[in-house]
């Protein structure tokens, strides 16, 4: 099943095109990496897909629904989860309350004002925390969590609306090398079992080459290469605009 299809996506902020005629599709259960130099248009692509920016031209369908004109919260309700490059959580709340908050929104309980929040969806929140291995932290204040745990909490929050598409912006940023691998393996496992398509950007090539099923390379707004990790690694064009001489990632990935 195709969870995301993008056709002819174009964006300019008045000047030159920042995203130029980009087309691709993402299948359920697939991990697709979007890489490219800084300023290539990766963030712009991401923000158009999640509804923060409008597009100049092109078509985006999420689970078959055309998203033009939809704001971020409507797009979220289509079944799109997000994690941020630098974690964004509700620091005044406990860990489980963070997940519950997303569940309140998903189950449309936001107008409830007469009953204490703790009565709603605690079980479901616990199950999500369990899924990312955070069950033991449920009662902790969120602001006491270590960075790697915050990343996992974000994943649990992102899964609260049973998404079919997960957008992860530099998921490995700020983590130690092995933590990165573990987070990405966890995400991949969840993607496969729940048939979620994951689109992610990343500068850590170890993570990209190891975990992406497929890689797209963006340069100056144009999709210059798309293929399997090994093909991307060997592409002279990608080396010239992005990868460099290859001193910054491991030589091979299992």
């Amino acid at each position: 099943m195709t969870v995301l299809s993008v056709k002819g996506l174009t964006k300019s902020f008045g000047g030159p095109k920042v995203v130029d005629n980009v087309s691709f599709a993402l299948e359920a259960g697939e991990m697709l990496a979007l890489i490219g130099p800084n300023g290539a248009g990766k963030s712009t692509c991401f923000n158009i897909i999640n509804g923060q920016l409008s597009r100049s031209a092109g078509e985006i369908r999420i689970l078959g629904v055309d998203t033009s004109g939809l704001d971020p919260s409507r797009i979220w309700r289509l079944g799109v989860g997000r994690t941020f490059q630098i974690t964004e959580t509700f620091l005044s709340m406990t860990v489980i309350e963070n997940v519950q908050m997303a569940l309140f929104s998903h189950h449309r309980l936001l107008t409830v004002w007469r009953k204490p929040a703790r009565h709603f969806h605690a079980r479901e929140a616990e199950a999500l925390l369990d899924l990312v291995g955070m069950a033991e932290f449920a009662g902790r204040p969120c602001r006491q969590l270590a960075y790697g745990d915050l990343k996992r909490l974000e994943l649990a929050i992102a899964l609260a609306n049973e998404p079919k598409l997960l957008l992860m912006d530099e998921p490995a940023a700020g983590m130690a090398p092995r933590e990165r691998g573990e987070l990405m393996s966890l995400a991949a496992r969840i993607a496969k079992t729940r048939a979620i398509g994951i689109l992610f950007t990343e500068h850590d090539m170890d993570v990209v080459f190891e975990h992406a099923d497929r890689i797209m390379v963006l340069n100056r707004g144009v999709l210059i290469f798309e293929g399997l990790p090994e093909a991307v690694r060997r592409s002279a064009e990608v080396q010239a605009v992005y990868l460099g001489a290859g001193t910054l990632y491991a030589e091979s990935h299992a």
Binding site: G36, P37, N38, E170, A173, M205, G246
Partner: peptide
Amino acid sequence: EGLAPKIVEQMA
């Protein structure tokens, strides 16, 4: 942080 591998090589 947040830079393309090629730029990081220049940085080095």
